[in-house]
Computed example of a mutant assay.
Amino acid sequence: MKLDPVSLRLFVSVVEEGTIAAAAKREHIAAAAVSKRLSELEELLDSRLLTRTNKGITPTDAGLSLLFMARSALNNLNEIVVQMRDYSHGRRGSVQVLANVSAITQFMPGLIQSFMALYPLITVSLEEQQSLAITKAVAENRADIGIFTRLPHGADIEVFPFRTDRLVVLVPSGHPLSGRESVSFSETLAHDHVTLRSGTHLNFQLIKAANDLGRSLKIRMEVSSYDALCLMVQAGVGVGIMPEGSVAIYKLNGARAVNLSDDWASRELSVCVRSRQGLSSAALLFLDHILAPPLVPPVAAE
């Protein structure tokens, strides 16, 4: 005979109810079956667990000790069921997300905050990667969801529209372009540039745009993040091109953003998965959350 949850539950019921008859009624089982289970339990544990009197049943010292352990064990078993059901319904789990720097700085903090408020038992792992690396990793099932700047790729993935952003030119105070409301990309090519490192989509985009004009991009410095780009521009190293939404999160006392007038300055960010049908419940909840239309603040009545 092995210790089983049914015997423990019946034992707890007998102690709590005070009689076998009351415990049998509570558990919807015959009184004789309850009595047999208790006898077998005492035999298995080689301990007298209950004292039977005309007034009912009371636990022995060994029985009291077992009562506390049995309640804890039954609670743990019930918690297993609850947590497994949470996984099956997507209320518990983990999601691996890759995103490029533009998505992370502009959109992901608010989306992750609102998602975690709805699903506090789901863990979101967010890692920054370059756009091409993101599509490749998702296709190879090394991440659940990817968010990247839309570009040609050969990955076998499903792609969904996410957000749009617009590039602006960040210029130091006192720079020849700092007094302008908008400039074309060709006008910036006469000046030194601070860009994201080689291999990023934005770096590629700027070099391609310069080549299309038959010009070259004068890269004075490459950096690994938008905050470093802003610092270098403020220090007067050169001008920088970055998303307007990313500029807004930095305090720029020594620089200002100027609109970039070229059509390609408006960019599409996309979400990709290997297969929507193959996502876990938790990952599918996250996907639906970030693809939902953004809330528009209500217009105040005049």
Rank of each mutant, 00 (worst) to 15 (best):
V171L: 03
P5N: 12
D156E: 15
V247S: 07
E79G: 00
A210G: 08
A248G: 02
F68R: 15
I57K: 03
W264V: 03
P297M: 08
V169G: 00
A21C: 01
T135H: 02
H175K: 01
S182I: 07
L121C: 02
L126F: 02
V183E: 02
S275V: 10
Q277V: 02
S102F: 00
T105D: 14
Q234L: 01
T195A: 11
L269N: 13
V247Y: 04
A73G: 00
H193K: 09
G146Q: 04
H289M: 05
T149D: 11
L121M: 12
S72L: 12
A283L: 02
Q96G: 00
K25E: 15
S88I: 10
R215T: 07
V169L: 11
A73I: 14
S7R: 15
V95D: 00
H175C: 09
T58I: 13
L111E: 13
P176A: 07
P176R: 03
D212Q: 13
A301F: 06
V97T: 05
L252S: 05
A301E: 15
M69H: 11
P152W: 08
F185G: 06
S72A: 12
A300M: 12
N100A: 02
A133M: 08
N259I: 09
L196E: 01
G245T: 01
Q205C: 01
L189D: 03
V169C: 12
K2H: 11
D4F: 01
L118H: 04
V97L: 13
G18L: 03
Q129E: 13
S266E: 14
A235C: 05
S270C: 10
I134W: 06
L217S: 09
H289I: 08
R52L: 09
G238E: 06
A257H: 05
G90D: 05
H89N: 14
L67T: 13
F115P: 00
S102V: 10
P161V: 06
P298K: 02
L269C: 08
R256H: 07
P120D: 01
L279T: 07
T19F: 01
G245Y: 00
Y226C: 06
Q234M: 14
A190S: 13
G93T: 03
E181C: 00
H289F: 10
G93R: 02
Q96E: 15
L260S: 09
M1T: 14
V171M: 08
R256C: 10
I104W: 03
D262N: 04
D227W: 03
G245R: 02
L285T: 09
S125K: 13
V124M: 03
L229Q: 12
L98N: 05
L260V: 04
T53S: 15
G236Q: 01
K136Q: 14
